[in-house]
Design a protein around this nucleic acid. Structure first.
Length: 558
RNA sequence: GCGCUCGUAGCUCAGUUGGAUAGAGCAACGGACUUCUAAUCCGUAGGCCGCGGGUUCGAAUCCUGCCGGGCGCGCCA
């Protein structure tokens, strides 16, 4: 399919140079030609402000230069209908019906591949997301991170990156001990010996801890009652981590999220990677000892203060293992590493970036997506959540109540750095306030129409169809929206902005519904009918591909 | 106190390398099915883009000072 932007750029560049030489103006270097999509109707399909930027070099008014460029445009290709000067000196370009028919035909040729592009150039990117401690079930906030990470990965893959998804398991450190002790205490409690193993301060109080203890009672009976607490602790801890991790995997899988790698923090210690990373930093002069602790020279980079790597008691900090982890990531050959974190960790970004630079990578080789909190509502009322008491709405609850499609859509609907109001009642209602159904309905409607067409013996064919018959305002607007999909994917991948896809989808569905209400398809004249069926097929493909990026079903009927 | 972040229509939000008259959805109001799915469409109304300065041909966008919300600031994770 033709690349409109490239074609336009070279057309404009040629005309601009001609205009310059005609006026005896010397251009310094290649002019950078900016193209954008005008927002308003009547301002063409593309616009360029090149005349305004050239005002100084030409010593002429922007409008004058714009006109000179327009007069020298080569319209031979046939894709460009006309160009006109507008406003303070914009040049508006109007694409031709020939271009529009090429778009539609191209989409059907590409099918599932439509929307993909090559800007990733096969580079390797890792997206690490969720990575919740295996100390309890995933809650709503994790759900948002899960979908944002998963959809971002989908988008990057569509943009030509080689993508790996990874879950980092924090299975080392104090929290694990605390988890084990919590289960241990509940175990003793269940067997009527709560006095022997008091519940730890700041222990995990959720009901699921009792469930885990009960499983051990069923499995091992009361044998652990007689053992010293230190002896049985690893048993409780191992069972808890294994069981909880299993639950997390199931929840994510049922949510449509699949990982390539589950990476254990503990393995970094076992393999000596933590020690090696520390040595690496010392050798490069980024680590030093003070007050009995080992410090990282974060201030060498762009962080406010130096950070502790090893406490004076010799124990590594979480930050230290994180450095080892990121070193491991880059050693695995990733060109770009993306971390998806909760927004409450934003203070951690400068030091992690500093660490990445100390490893010899550029700051841009790490991108952190900070996910703001989810405000859970039900029918406009805030749902009370308290981590302390162990009472919170789990991701599983949300999936069970709302369903996967609506949940996923709602979780990526907003930009990451915006708080998200998630109304459970709204998300599961087939309400007109619910954008998921609006978009899915568009897809189902097209399939319904195809079924009706088949029933009437009308075949969908790409042969001998004159797509230039699609000349109504609604058809042209729909085609332009279809044509924008690949660049939308490209932008979403560059900005790491998965929410863009939901906005695009809604817009596309809206253009389809408008067309559908304004025009008849099956009752049209045979030539027009064939053209419209082809247009709807292209729409169906684009809707399905975009929904696919979100991991949301594209139903054939509703 | 320092730092990050957000502040756009009544509500929820788009608007990212500075561009033309700031856009959607919902809510409100008024219309459209004997028809391929009305889970739809069409129209009306709704705005000191938090406030004040600055940068320039041009600012919701960049800089700066305030105001307000959220979050962070440990040899915790």
């Amino acid at each position: 399919m033709i690349n409109v932007e490239e074609t336009l750029r070279s057309l404009i560049g040629g005309a601009l140079k001609k205009a310059a030489s005609d006026r005896g103006v010397e251009l310094v270097g290649e002019p950078v030609i900016m193209l954008e999509k005008p927002r308003r109707e009547g301002q063409g399909d593309w616009a360029s402000n090149v005349a305004m930027q050239m005002a100084k070099a030409f010593g002429a008014s922007p409008r004058e230069i714009a006109q000179a460029v327009v007069d020298r445009l080569d319209l031979e290709s046939g894709y460009l209908d006309r160009a006109e000067v507008a406003g303070p000196g914009f040049i508006n370009f109007f694409l031709s019906p020939l271009w529009a028919s090429e778009v539609v035909a191209g989409i059907r040729r590409q099918g599932e591949a439509y929307g993909r592009c090559g800007i990733g150039r096969g580079r390797k990117v890792q997206v690490e997301f969720v990575s919740a401690n295996p100390t309890g079930p995933l809650h709503v906030g994790h759900g948002r991170g899960a979908v944002v990470g998963d959809v971002t990965a989908n988008i990057l893959a569509a943009a030509g990156w080689e993508v790996e998804r990874e879950y980092y398991i924090n299975d080392a450190g104090l929290q694990m001990t605390l988890l084990g002790k919590s289960v241990q205490s509940r175990y003793f409690d269940l067997l009527g010996r709560s006095d022997a193993a008091p519940f730890p301060e700041d222990g995990y109080k959720g009901e699921y801890i009792y469930d885990l203890a009960r499983e051990l009672v069923d499995r091992d009976g009361d044998v652990h009652l007689e053992e010293p607490l230190e002896t049985s602790l690893p048993v409780f801890q191992a069972h808890a981590v294994e069981a909880i991790l299993g639950m997390i995997r199931r929840d994510l899988k049922d949510f449509g999220v699949c990982y390539d790698v589950w990476f254990s923090e503990k393995s970094l210690y076992d393999s000596g990677a933590v020690r090696e990373a520390a040595e690496f930093l010392k050798k490069r002069g980024f680590a030093y000892e003070k007050d009995g602790a080992v410090w990282f020279k974060a201030t060498e980079f762009d962080d406010a203060k130096d950070r502790v790597l090893f406490r004076s008691n010799g124990v590594a900090t979480y930050f230290m293992s994180d450095i080892a982890y990121h070193k491991n990531k880059y050693d695995r050959g990733f060109d770009l590493v993306i971390d998806v974190w909760g927004a409450d960790h934003h203070g951690y970004v400068p030091r992690m970036t500093a660490a990445v630079e100390s490893l010899g990578r550029k700051a841009e080789d790490l991108r952190v997506l900070l996910i703001q909190f989810v405000n859970l509502l039900r029918g406009g009322e805030q749902v009370a959540m308290s981590t302390r008491s162990g009472q919170f709405v789990t991701l599983r609850d949300v999936i069970d109540e709302v369903g996967v499609d609506a949940s996923r859509y709602f979780f990526v609907m907003r930009s990451c750095d915006s708080h998200l109001d998630f109304d459970l009642a709204l998300a599961k209602e087939a309400s007109n306030e619910n954008p998921v159904y609006y978009v899915q309905y568009a897809h189902a409607r097209i399939h319904s129409l195809f079924r009706e067409a088949a029933g009437r013996g009308v075949a969908l064919s790409g042969e001998d169809v004159d797509l230039r018959l699609l000349d109504t305002a609604e058809e042209q607007a729909l085609i332009r929206k279809l044509a924008a999909f690949p660049e939308e994917v490209a932008k979403a991948s560059e900005e790491l902005a998965p929410h863009r896809v939901t906005f695009y989808l809604y817009d596309l569905a809206s253009h389809f519904h408008s067309f559908y209400n304004a025009h008849r398809v099956l009752d049209a004249e045979p030539d027009l009918r064939r053209a419209r069926l082809v247009l709807l097929d292209a729409t169906r493909i684009t809707l399905a591909n975009a929904l696919g990026l979100l991991g949301v079903q594209a139903p054939q009927n509703m």
